[in-house]
Design a protein around this nucleic acid. Structure first.
Lengths: 101, 101
DNA sequence: TTGGTATATCGGGAAATTCCGATATACATT
DNA sequence: AATGTATATCGGAATTTCCCGATATACCAA
């Protein structure tokens, strides 16, 4: 993964916000059905879109930008796509900063 | 300092490169006069520009973007401006990633 | 003071990003 | 099959970024 692409993904207020939300899904998305183990699967696009206030198409695109940067990952279940934080990608980013910069 | 501005500063190939160069100035700028303690003062704009291959005005602007993001700092000596890595800013960035994202 | 060198700032054309509404696709239900 | 819901993709207007050459400013030396 290109380093520049990672930083580009992070250089937008809303995308940074989404990543922060996904760090604490239970806190930030309490309206998710109680049974759903969103801690493992993630949060669906609609919930994120609702909280962001931006359009559905914009959020869908933003999530794919974050995913291309390997900062989040997705799982499709039925008609929903769930996104969650990608621990490995974020650790790699931390490593880039600590070793390359 | 705004988080987004930090990531914007880093989302460009040349600016990332400059930061990497400034991590090892003695290695990356061997043509600097031997007596100069660039390890403490930094590297002057001209040397960075030369190595980058981009125009003087572009590099001057890029350096000020990196400085506004608190990733580097500058010292003026005579007609030269020396830039060096800002350890504190980079540590703060590392902390943002480890705690907020 | 005049001229030379280093850096900063200005103005702008080209390319990329932001964010939207419209539309397409995928899946579930009836 | 037909309808409804969730998400992805497309086309585009507005804004921002990239990077340049020209010019301004700061400092130094003769």
């Amino acid at each position: 993964m290109d380093q520049v692409e990672i930083f580009k993904a992070l250089s937008n207020k809303t995308r940074l916000q989404i990543l922060a939300w996904l760090k604490e899904p239970a806190v930030n998305f309490p309206e998710q059905p109680a049974g759903a183990d969103f801690e493992t699967v993630g949060v669906c696009v609609g919930q994120i879109q609702l909280k962001s206030g931006l359009s559905q198409s914009t959020i869908s695109e933003y999530l794919s930008i974050l995913q291309r940067a390997e900062l989040i990952s997705s799982t499709r279940i039925g008609q929903w796509t769930y996104y969650k934080r990608n621990k490995e990608g974020l650790e790699k980013l931390s490593e880039i900063i600590n070793t390359a910069l």
